[in-house]
């Protein structure tokens, strides 16, 4: 297996505040890797730092054998990395179709129709709402749209930030099933950030536990699920 994404000692700051404290993460081609941790641990910052916003202040980020540490965000995102960010960030005054077109802005236009159909077969709900404005969708629909939009560029690496947050349990199951399918059927490598550790660890091949901007533990999904300290901190009493 080849390493697709490699973070080595990455530190990131917001102004003077340090949010990431030299973290190491490796994602192999074809894997689902999850990053779990409490609110404020630095999970979203990790995904955003991979995308160059904020830029890492020290350490190195390698993607597909290239050093992307100091590249501007738009260049990184044209290398086959996509993100469905925290809060979904759907363009509120654009239709579902326009949001998806934005996702495909730098892809080959010849792929557009086929990719659109694939997104619709993954999330049929979006097809029904194709002309509806993004801002008027429900939270679950927005999440589907955010993932669909991220897929429209045919990513090699998909970064997902808390896709289950604030969504009805039935839709959560549907979204996790879709994530599994994106990985298994399309071969897209996935780095999944979740507070819903139980679901995430069951789905992922491997996981990392982030505490206060540092990696505290890592292992396969089942290993981490079996660790008593993980159960105590992230599972018991937590949402399932």
């Amino acid at each position: 297996m080849t390493v697709l994404l490699d973070l080595e000692g990455v530190a990131a700051y917001y102004g003077a505040i340090q949010a990431l404290n030299g973290i190491d993460i490796q994602v192999m081609e074809g894997e689902i890797v999850t990053l779990i941790g409490a609110n404020g641990a630095g999970k979203s910052t990790t995904l955003m730092t991979i995308c160059g916003s904020p830029q890492a202040r020290s350490g190195r980020i390698m993607y597909a054998g290239e050093d992307i540490t100091n590249r501007p965000t738009h260049q990184i995102m044209r290398m086959g990395i996509s993100q469905s960010p925290e809060g979904r960030r759907i363009f509120p005054r654009m239709t579902v179709l326009e949001n998806l077109q934005m996702g495909a802005a730098f892809g080959d236009p010849a792929h557009f129709d086929a990719d659109l159909e694939e997104v619709f077969s993954l999330f049929p709900r979006l097809k029904e709402r194709i002309a509806q404005r993004g801002g008027t969708l429900s939270g679950g629909e927005q999440q589907m749209l955010a993932i669909g939009r991220a897929l429209m560029s045919r990513p090699r690496l998909l970064l997902l930030d808390e896709p289950s947050l604030g969504i009805a349990p039935m839709l959560v199951r549907q979204i996790f099933a879709a994530i599994k399918e994106i990985n298994a059927a399309k071969g897209v490598t996935i780095l999944l950030v979740e507070q819903n550790a139980f679901h995430a660890l069951r789905l992922a091949h491997r996981g990392y536990v982030l505490v206060n901007g540092a990696i505290q533990m890592s292992g396969t999904g089942s290993e981490l699920l079996a660790r008593p300290e993980i159960r105590a901190a992230y599972l018991e009493g937590g949402a399932v």
């Binding site: 995308c51 916003s53 501007p72 965000t73 738009h74 995102m77 044209r78 993100q83 960010p85 960030r89 363009f91 509120p92 005054r93 654009m94 326009e98 077109q101 934005m102 996702g103 802005a105 730098f106 939009r149 560029s153």
Partner: peptide, 19 residues
């Protein structure tokens, strides 16, 4: 469309590869 995207959420527009 790119201009409207920047107007509505500049950070997200960059995350979609927009300069």
């Amino acid at each position: 469309r790119s201009q409207r995207a920047c107007e509505q959420d500049m950070k997200m527009a960059a995350l979609l590869g927009l300069d």
